[in-house]
Each structure stands twice: as structure tokens, then as C-alpha cells.
């Protein structure tokens, strides 16, 4: 057994008096495809924000690729290979769609000692990534010209652009058509086959079940289940959380 790529130990996060996450333990192995589910407000995005350094957790340790990431600013975590998309898209509004991808290429990929994308290749690289998520036609557009759904795709492309070891897609498929969900699923599975570990946060159960090798369930800031998808969905506690909604 090799050490996990990501390991979260006893992570806790409060907003004022409200406990958003309590004693979360989570290990994710290299190359895994994990689904993270839970009712709205259960703390999934907050967990991502704590792991990525966007928010500070009060307790617990997040280890990535063997090193503790506590206190590391978010940009250093991204450079180590931890990428996430935001659930509510946060595009760079004064930059074109293609230029939005230039930021992670210049500041993450080219900030790593090994990889270097030559200046002349950056534009081509941006366009390739946009083609992968089905935004090839929009590269010269501004983010404000995109639909909400297209912004989600841009959000995913921007996370992919940093060439991560671990990619967390936070509800990247919400609102997509059946065919588009299949396209993104195929894309994520292809990425995974190339060696990227992927955590998918999703409400579309069809996509989650098709994608995940393992399923983790959060309810009200606690992890209530973690295991094979088929077992987890039959777990009475999980059923109660979902049916009781």
C-alpha cells in the first residue's frame, strides 16, 4: 500500500458559532476516482475550500503528496498539484475566455521547475483545453458573454489547465444536458486514465454512480459513509439523509 495522495485528518471548520465541518477524516489514493455527495449545505464546498487553502480550517491536518499543507497559501497548493473548480464560477472578467486559462499556465505550470510551456505555445494550449470542454468557439469571447453552463465548463478547463495531480470538480455538471454530462464524464475519465486523481462533487446520481470507484457522503458537516458506491447507496443512514430531504 502506497501512501495516499491526499489525506485529511480530523479537519474541523466553523463559521462563527456554526459548525460547518466536524472531525473529517478522508484518504484519497493516487489515481482514484472518488465521488463526494451530500445534501445542499452539508459542507462539501467548505471541505474543498479548506483543503485548497481558500479557507482556513481551525483543526486538523491536510497532507498532499506526502507533505502537510497547513499554512500554505492557496497558490502554493495549486503549484503542488492540487486543483479545484469553484461551484459558483469565478471567471476573470476582464480577460477573454482563452486568457482565463493563460493564468494557470503561466503561474502554475510554468512556475514548476520541470514543465515549461514556451510563450509561443500558450495560446495553442489554451485553445486545446477549451476544445476539450466544448468551448472552442468561445475563446475570444469575454466571460460575461457566456451562459452559466459555459462558465462551469470554463471553470473546469481552468482547473485542468494547471496540470494537476488531483482535480476536484465542484458540481461542474449542474444544468448540463444529458449529452453534455456524458461528454464531461468521458473527459474526466480520460483525464483519470492519464493519471490524474479526481474527486467529483455532484448531485446527478447517474453521473456519480457511473464515475466513482468510491463514494464519500457528507451530511451536516460529518462524514457518514465512505466505501464502494453500491454499498454506500444502500446504507440506511445515507438513505435517510436523502429521503428525509
Amino acid at each position: 500500500m502506497t501512501a495516499p495522495l491526499l489525506s485529511v485528518e480530523n479537519l474541523g471548520k466553523r463559521f462563527g458559532g456554526f459548525v460547518a465541518l466536524e472531525a473529517i477524516h478522508l484518504d484519497i489514493a493516487k489515481g482514484e476516482r472518488v465521488g463526494l455527495i451530500g445534501p445542499n449545505g452539508s459542507g462539501k464546498s467548505t471541505l474543498v475550500n479548506c483543503m485548497s487553502g481558500t479557507l482556513r480550517n481551525e483543526t486538523g491536518i491536510v497532507r498532499f503528496d506526502g507533505r502537510p499543507m497547513n499554512g500554505l497559501p492557496a497558490h502554493q497548493r495549486t503549484r503542488l498539484g492540487f486543483a479545484r473548480s469553484f461551484q459558483l464560477p469565478r471567471p476573470f472578467n476582464s480577460l477573454s475566455v482563452a486568457e482565463n486559462l493563460r493564468i494557470p499556465i503561466e503561474y502554475t505550470v510554468n512556475a514548476r521547475p520541470a514543465a515549461h510551456v514556451p510563450a509561443g505555445d500558450i495560446v495553442g494550449r489554451c485553445n486545446d483545453l477549451l476544445a476539450m470542454v466544448g468551448l472552442a468557439e468561445k475563446s475570444e469571447k469575454m466571460p460575461r458573454d457566456l451562459t452559466q453552463i459555459e462558465m462551469r465548463k470554463l471553470e473546469l478547463a481552468r482547473a485542468m489547465a494547471s496540470e494537476p495531480k488531483l482535480l476536484i470538480a465542484d458540481e461542474a455538471m449542474a444544468g448540463l444536458s444529458h449529452a453534455e454530462v456524458d461528454d464531461i464524464l468521458a473527459l474526466l475519465i480520460r483525464l483519470n486514465e492519464q493519471g490524474v486523481t479526481i474527486v467529483m462533487i455532484e448531485h446527478i446520481m447517474r453521473a456519480v454512480m457511473q464515475f466513482s470507484q468510491r463514494l464519500v457522503v457528507l451530511v451536516a458537516g460529518r462524514k457518514i459513509a465512505d466505501g464502494l458506491p453500491a454499498d454506500v447507496v444502500r446504507n440506511p443512514e445515507v438513505e435517510r439523509a436523502y429521503l428525509g430531504e
Binding site: H75, F86, Y107
Partner: peptide, 16 residues
């Protein structure tokens, strides 16, 4: 420009 538009997203994209 990334900082001006969205600092959290800039950090997540590797901008110090």
C-alpha cells in the same frame, strides 16, 4: 488582472 478580477480565483490558479 487576475487579482483585480477575483483574488481567490487568482490564488487557485497559482498567482502569488
Amino acid at each position: 488582472a487576475a487579482i483585480r478580477d477575483d483574488e481567490a480565483a487568482a490564488e487557485a490558479s497559482g498567482v502569488p
